[in-house]
């Protein structure tokens, strides 16, 4: 059986909010590392990979690996019944038909218990190769969100150009064109507001803004986002949490 207790229900709520517009039916793969998921969107353009590490739960008990087939719209409905500050316990049997979600308030005088019906989801898992990226840009997640939301007003796609001078996001559409350039800067007082660029070679790639705007729903999970790019490979957008991560992969657009 699985028993996993999370100090803050808000963490799972934010994770689900971040991915539920991209993927609908998913498996939570529970193993010794923690609770993981990997799923592609219907068009096979974007992939989400998430891990809530077992260390992030206290306790984390698992007798054997199990996959919990979940409809995220249904899970969202149940998670709405939890306060962000509630303690959340997930429980499931070894061959589960349902997932139990128990919410307790911090004062320990309210306990809510919900059962979510599980589904059989036949999910294809992709092998994501270890990649040495040519450029890794870490920046405030709110800044990345603002840039994507601004540029999508002008165009469907954005060209990201990373060089040692900085990172330039540019787009061009029917009404005109626009760009935002961020220079590398180190904010000593507030490291989360720094923009850092690690570069082995300059990179220029074009991506669909619709997906990037969607990924930015994970901004609530982390104040910092890391964009990893190499020419002609999918972009990696990572939101790191205290004990886990949400990663998005997006295939580039090619040709003009």
């Amino acid at each position: 059986m699985l028993e996993a207790r999370l100090e803050q229900a808000g963490v799972l709520k934010k994770v689900v909010d971040a991915i539920r517009d991209l993927v609908q039916d998913i498996n939570f793969d529970c193993n010794d590392s923690g609770i993981a998921l990997q799923a592609m969107d219907n068009s096979h353009v974007a992939l989400v990979s998430m891990l809530l590490k077992s260390e992030g739960f206290s306790p984390y008990r698992l007798d054997r690996n199990i996959a919990l087939g979940i409809n995220l719209t249904s899970l969202t409905k149940v998670l709405r019944c939890a306060q962000n500050e509630d303690i959340l316990t997930l429980k499931a049997e070894d061959t589960p038909d349902t997932l139990s979600l128990i919410f307790e308030n911090a004062e320990n005088d309210r306990i809510s218990e919900y059962e979510l019906k599980l589904m059989d989801i036949d999910q294809e898992h992709l092998g994501i190769p270890e990649t040495e990226y040519a450029a890794a840009i870490s920046m405030p997640s709110a800044e990345f969100q603002r840039i994507c939301r601004d540029l999508i007003q002008l165009s469907d796609s954005v060209t990201i150009e990373a060089s040692k001078e900085g990172v330039k996001f540019s787009c061009s559409g029917d009404i005109g064109s626009g760009s935002v350039t961020l220079r590398q800067q180190n904010n000593v007082d507030k490291p989360d507001l720094s923009t850092k660029i690690e570069l082995t070679e300059p990179v220029t790639l074009t991506f669909s803004l619709k997906y990037l705007v969607n990924f930015c729903k994970a901004s609530a999970l982390s104040s910092v986002v890391t964009l990893s790019l190499s020419n002609e490979v999918p972009l990696l957008v990572e939101y790191a949490m205290g004990s886990g991560f949400v990663r998005f992969y997006l295939a580039p657009k090619i040709g003009e």
């Binding site: 592609m40 353009v45 992709l126 999918p234 657009k253």
Partner: peptide, 14 residues
């Protein structure tokens, strides 16, 4: 316009 690539051309099925 640029063509949207599929992830399947980069990541193999496991």
């Amino acid at each position: 316009p640029a063509d949207q690539e599929s992830l399947l051309s980069y990541f193999g099925k496991r």
